[in-house]
Design a protein around this nucleic acid. Structure first.
Lengths: 233, 233
DNA sequence: GAATGCGAGTGACCCGGATCACACGCCTCA
DNA sequence: TGAGGCGTGTGATCCGGGTCACTCGCATTC
């Protein structure tokens, strides 16, 4: 499918580029559609293109040697992935799979790399992104060290609504919350354990289900007390 | 203590800078000595300088809310830490503490940042470093997901001798191996469990102690089979 | 030489979370 | 309309690894 400069403008990162450079970049890009469960990027593989998500939802997953999934993150429209090789020409670190049918724009890494050299704001943006990723990974790792299960779950929930609405500290909503299974994978727990924790959290009115696509947090402050360990169970 | 341009040349990263720029940079730097157990950088704090290690050994550590240590890495002479804020002006992610008495050169972040803009090779070097860090964190996280304890320990040992000698695949040595306690912290285990695993590994001749400062691996291939799960116990 | 600290080694106990094996309700799709 | 898949809910069982409470040996320090 053909990629227009206007399409590239959809992506915040590429908006940083000088407008006149978009047409040539667009020529080198391609668009591809993927069905649910398709694999977009393979871990351990040298990729020569980055993946910009136009629509749908992607997920980064990792596997242990015994086939269990571990650790993961989500990619939303406008965001991208597979950019790590820009900095060290290394291989892809995790699998990227499709959660809901997706349209992806492939951008050649070499062009992106060249653009990074030309356009300092692009470079600093990408750098900041890596830094953010490191912070997230560090945080996620510290979650895995928590001895108390409920605390781990609450901390993860806290992370999931992070930047949005955490500021005003009243009630919050997590839309498209991960399934119990996905949370279990992120926190290195079993699915059943997550279910049980959620049952307990609902009983204590820490969270409420609002259909399948929304998870309400009546009191962010309450969630926080469980997340930081000052209250238990 | 005064910092000379020659001293800065000790650090591979700063060698990338044009030589004429070193004297002015050196003027803005300071050197400081730290005793064992001292805290060099505090997590959660805005630092306006990066920490370059001249001699001694540092360790990055993190704490959960309940005071347990989790996750950590080491800093060797010539290396540096606290550079993450260069990219996003964020806070320090982990505590940096002193393992063996250290001499540290403080380099102002703003000057480093300016140097990064002037000197593309410096920028790409720092970028590559972040990328490497992300890869390590990702790997470390996948370790934490392993169900089998011995496998986790063996994988960690494998990581510890990574780049050095893993290539020729015969025998290996880990010098200055982490203590059982440190390994326990890295792998989210108790110290006793690590001790027991090591006992088992010694019985199977996977590892041998050679004094306190060296850990011998008679057969890297054997270690690998335990690390990737193809052999157990 | 005694005192102190630290890393390592080991046994006993016990609990928390994995595992297994179900059931239920809600989708989508044929 | 029915079948299958999937996300969720729940009980019973079991065992791996945490915790506790020691000991031992080797540094370092006074």
């Amino acid at each position: 499918m053909v990629v227009t400069p206007e399409l590239l403008n959809f992506f915040p990162l590429l908006k940083l580029l000088p407008p006149h450079s978009l047409p040539t970049l667009a020529q080198a890009c391609t668009m591809e559609r993927f069905a649910r469960r398709a694999v977009v990027l393979n871990a351990g593989q040298h990729e020569e293109r980055a993946c910009f998500l136009f629509e749908g939802r992607l997920q980064g997953v990792d596997f242990t040697v015994d086939g269990r999934e571990v650790g993961l993150f989500f990619v939303e429209p406008g965001d991208f992935c597979g950019e790590l090789a820009l900095f060290d020409r290394g291989v892809q670190t995790e699998y990227i799979i499709v959660l809901s049918p997706a349209a992806v724009v492939w951008v050649p890494l070499e062009l992106l790399h060249a653009a990074m050299l030309d356009c300092p704001s692009l470079a600093s943006n990408l750098g900041a992104r890596l830094a953010r990723r490191i912070r997230q990974l560090t945080l996620q790792r510290s979650l895995l060290g928590m001895p108390n299960i409920a605390q781990r779950v609450c901390s993860q929930l806290w992370l999931l609504l992070e930047d949005n609405e955490k500021a005003h500290m009243k009630e919050g909503v997590i839309k498209n919350p991960p399934t119990h299974m996905e949370i279990a994978i992120m926190l290195n727990l079993s699915r059943e354990t997550v279910t049980r924790v959620f049952q307990a959290l609902q009983q204590h009115d820490v969270v409420r289900r609002d259909g399948a696509a929304r998870l309400q947090i009546p009191s962010l402050a309450l969630l926080k007390t469980y997340a930081d360990g000052s209250r238990e169970l």
